[in-house]
């Protein structure tokens, strides 16, 4: 009887152990996201595509334009009254222009005077066709509190705002000192402005402010076609990292400071 009970206990223990393992191994599998369900060979689309009716696809002179719907390849059609070319005519590629930001909520948490904080976000541009592109950034106003009119100035870097060698919206300068306050950023990686590569890894510059107004600053650009016309495609992914830096002085009023950064990626022409 005792032997039977022991066997039963062992069986039960194994049952519990197996259940635990099963649940751990089965339910902890990574998610099969819909976005991964495609390749160069197939694509599973579940979105509703608004295909136009025939009447919608007629041009003013009565010619059917149905073959333009969903057109992604470089091509040309002509008709009375217009000639249309889609894509870059010197390259035959259907890879679209894409832009990604790895973190759109760039959080600094609690800010302490004299202790600079940094946060990063990655920018990725993919372009299988022409390859020429630019990414610009600007801030929609300074970092400011939702209530009241308190704001954090854009940084002038270590030399200070009165020095001609200060960092500007186009030129980076060294920001090493903990006594230097303000809000700024630096870039590293591919296709970044030369001011960051020549100045060094501790160089920052302020964001252009649309409320002043100032023109957006180019943070990534490539004048080179990313495809070797004579052979295989080159690297079509261009990635850079933006490091944002924030530091405040002792007299900065307490509060939560926020702003919106506008990243704009456009292909060339």
């Amino acid at each position: 009887m005792k032997n039977y009970n022991l066997k039963l206990k062992i069986v039960r223990f194994f049952f519990v152990f197996l259940t635990f393992n099963f649940s751990f191994l089965t339910l902890n599998l990574s998610q099969a996201l819909a976005i991964e369900m495609n390749s160069s060979q197939y694509r599973i689309q579940m979105s509703n595509v608004n295909i136009g009716a025939a009447s919608q696809l007629q041009s003013d002179n009565g010619n059917l334009l149905s073959d333009t719907l969903g057109q992604t390849a470089a091509g040309q059609f002509s008709s009375d009254g217009y000639i249309l070319k889609a894509g870059f005519q010197y390259i035959h590629s259907i890879v679209p222009f894409s832009f990604a930001i790895s973190n759109i909520n760039i959080n600094f948490g609690e800010v302490t005077p004299g202790l600079p904080l940094t946060a990063t976000t990655d920018l990725t541009v993919s372009f299988g066709g022409g390859g020429e592109y630019q990414v610009t950034v600007n801030e929609l106003g300074k970092l400011k509190t939702a209530v009241g009119n308190n704001y954090i100035n854009d940084t002038c870097c270590d030399l200070g705002c009165s020095d001609p060698g200060k960092c500007t919206e186009t030129a980076a300068a060294v920001w090493n000192l903990n006594t230097t306050t303000g809000f700024g950023y630096k870039m590293s990686g591919e296709d970044i402005p030369t001011t960051f590569t020549t100045c060094g890894p501790t160089c920052y510059r302020p964001f252009p402010d649309t409320s002043i107004p100032e023109d957006p600053a180019i943070i990534m650009s490539s004048p080179n076609v990313t495809v070797d016309l004579s052979s295989k495609p080159k690297d079509i992914y261009h990635q850079s990292t933006m490091t944002l830096k924030l530091n405040i002085s002792d007299i900065q009023p307490a509060g939560t400071y926020q702003t919106v950064l506008n990243f704009m990626a456009t292909p060339s022409y």
């Binding site: 894409s98 909520n105 948490g109 939560t256 990243f263 292909p267």
Partner: peptide
């Protein structure tokens, strides 16, 4: 949306086609 109690830069992305 903004996160209460935390200083942050919130990003919006714009993509263009000429």
């Amino acid at each position: 949306p903004s996160v209460a109690g935390s200083s942050a830069g919130r990003a919006k992305a714009t993509i263009g086609s000429n």
